[in-house]
Write a protein that binds this DNA or RNA. Structure first.
Length: 505
RNA sequence: GGCGCUUUCGUCUAGCGGCUAGGACACAUGCCUCUCACGCAUGGAACACGGGUUCGAUUCCCGUAGGCGCUACCA
């Protein structure tokens, strides 16, 4: 077989917000495509018209735009393998369904959903397959004239895949190796529904992957049980020689308890499970997003990449480009990974540290404006430089940094008790006088003069500094004092000191 | 129930027959220090169980148990 250009796809259903697990699947597809110089396709799998949610498709596209995952072709990206929306490919699927029917690889079934339900209630573990299909109403059990009559009368029908029983089907999985499943446990899957004239996932998936020349299918583990069905379909079409390689990824599990990660867990534990805030058009419910929660996209991607894969070294912080270089699909873990959202916040912290003060300042500027502070950007950059190391999220800067822009309205009671001594008012008055006399109010000069003044007078460094901090900040924490006073400037520093002396006495 | 996948510190994981079982998050302690953080250092913490194979199993094989998924005219 000749070497084909690597082509992979991410193919979500527009049934709601993009789940974070889907983001990871897309990321792995992206990394795989890029490291092989291949292409990444964005396909919309909207074959279930009843589950379509307006806005979902746009939401997914916007999510990847924010995250920085770029597609080469697909819905909204163009390309010459379109259309990329399955609902627009009806005619294509019909043609291939007819081919299967003509070849005797599939058959028409007239059983109504009610009849099937009744059957399932009647027979325990009922499965529509080689052992039962002749007892059902379909083109294998009915005569040609009966079938024709039903069709002519306009009866709804489905097309089922005729699975030959008792054959061991092998899937050569990139992550799990050789997986064998016997065809007898597969049922005669519905491939096509006359009601909406659309195929089901299984048929559309195989036809599209083939026509779009997909070489590797990287998807969630939930698809592993139906992988043999897909293999059988490729064979039925005569496409076995160009069948894509499969890689089934482990699932993302709940941070605690049992089961896979769900939206509920995010609500319950207080972390987002969607990249962007999502407004459900049906329920009106609003779900938080990573973007709105203050995560940096690079941090989200880095965090996600390491849930189920690692480069085999001790490096954890990696840019997208580095990940492309280091990624190895065969080194993915096989077992599901608990979603450790606490570690996610640590990644964000690391990326805040890594980003320039200017970049973080631009984010913080927005929050400051929302809080009514219209500060020049260079002042914000200074504050960010002083404070960004203490937070996991940019928005956490606001409560921590308020005092830089606004004099304390009150003085924290506990801190007053602890730091405001008998002589503090007197000491602060003297310190204010020293500062008043400074022409050069730079950090360095203040530090030199004040430190000397403390030593010369035999004061205790901690007493003076902490009392001083109380006057400028209003509480007992914050960066170094000279950073604060230099930022505030002489006038504001003295104003705050005199006010505190007056109030605290 | 059936079928498949899976199983190393609380969590994410490294390990690919012989290691004091390594790292990270979280946690604890200490250092730094004008406070609070950051940072740095140190510490506690794991091979699910039972059989094999082997001179030797965390590592290979088989069971058991647990976990996860699938079992729709959903993807």
């Amino acid at each position: 077989m000749t070497e084909r250009k690597v082509r992979v796809r991410f193919a979500p259903s527009p049934t709601g917000a993009l789940h974070i697990g889907g983001v990871r699947t897309a990321l792995y597809n992206y990394l795989f495509a890029r490291q092989h110089g291949g292409e990444l396709i964005f396909r919309i799998e909207d074959t279930d018209s009843t589950r379509f949610v307006p806005g979902a498709e746009e939401y997914i596209i916007e999510s990847f735009r924010w995250l920085g995952i770029e597609f080469d072709e697909g819905v909204s990206f163009g390309g010459n393998h379109g259309p990329y929306r399955q609902s627009e490919r009806r005619d294509i699927y019909k043609k291939y369904v007819d081919q299967l029917l003509a070849d005797g690889k599939a058959y028409v079934a007239f059983d109504t959903p009610e009849e099937l339900d009744a059957k399932r209630n009647e027979v325990k573990n009922f499965q529509y397959d080689a052992s039962t299909r002749l007892g059902m109403r379909n083109s294998l059990s009915l005569s040609d004239s009966e079938v024709k009559a039903l069709l002519d009368a306009g009866h709804q029908y489905v097309v089922r895949f005729k699975v030959e029983p008792d054959e061991d089907v092998h899937i050569d999985d990139l992550i799990r190796g050789d997986v064998v499943i016997n065809s007898s446990i597969l049922d005669d899957k519905v491939l096509y529904k006359s009601a909406d004239q659309l195929p089901t996932y299984h048929l559309a998936n195989i036809v599209d992957d083939h026509l779009m020349e997909v070489t590797h299918v990287i998807r969630g583990e939930e698809w592993l049980p139906s992988a043999p069905l897909h293999v059988l379909l490729y064979r039925a079409f005569g496409w076995a020689d160009t069948m894509p390689r499969f890689a089934h990824l482990p699932l993302l599990l709940k941070p605690d308890g049992k089961g896979k990660l769900s939206k509920r867990d995010g609500d319950r534990l207080g972390f987002p499970v969607f990249p962007l805030e999502w407004h459900d058009p049906k329920t009106g419910e609003v779900s938080s997003g990573y973007r709105e929660s203050g995560y940096l996209p690079e941090a989200v991607l880095n965090f996600l990449a390491l849930l189920g894969w690692n480069p085999g070294t001790e490096q954890e912080i990696m840019s997208l480009d580095e990940m492309v270089r280091l990624f190895d699909i065969t080194k993915c873990s096989k077992a599901g990974a608990r979603f450790d959202y606490v570690k996610g916040t640590w990644f964000n912290h690391e990326y805040i540290l890594q980003k320039s003060d200017e970049e973080i300042a631009r984010h913080f500027e927005v929050i400051l404006k929302e809080n009514g502070f219209d500060e020049p950007i260079d002042r914000i950059v200074t504050v960010v430089g002083l404070m960004k190391g203490r937070v996991n999220f940019v928005k956490e800067l606001m409560p921590l940094c308020r005092f830089f822009f606004e004099a304390p309205a009150e003085y924290d009671e506990k801190t007053v008790k602890k730091r405001w001594k008998e002589t503090s008012a007197e000491d602060m008055t003297r310190l204010a006088a020293v500062l008043e006399g400074l022409d050069d109010f730079s950090l360095e000069h203040q530090e030199e003069v004040v430190t000397k003044w403390i030593e010369d007078n035999g004061f205790h460094m901690g007493n003076i500094m902490n009392a001083w901090r109380l006057t400028l900040v209003g509480e007992g924490k914050g960066p170094h004092m000279f950073d604060i006073s230099a930022f505030l400037g002489k006038e504001e520093t003295l104003r705050r000191m005199y006010r505190a002396i007056e109030v605290l006495k």
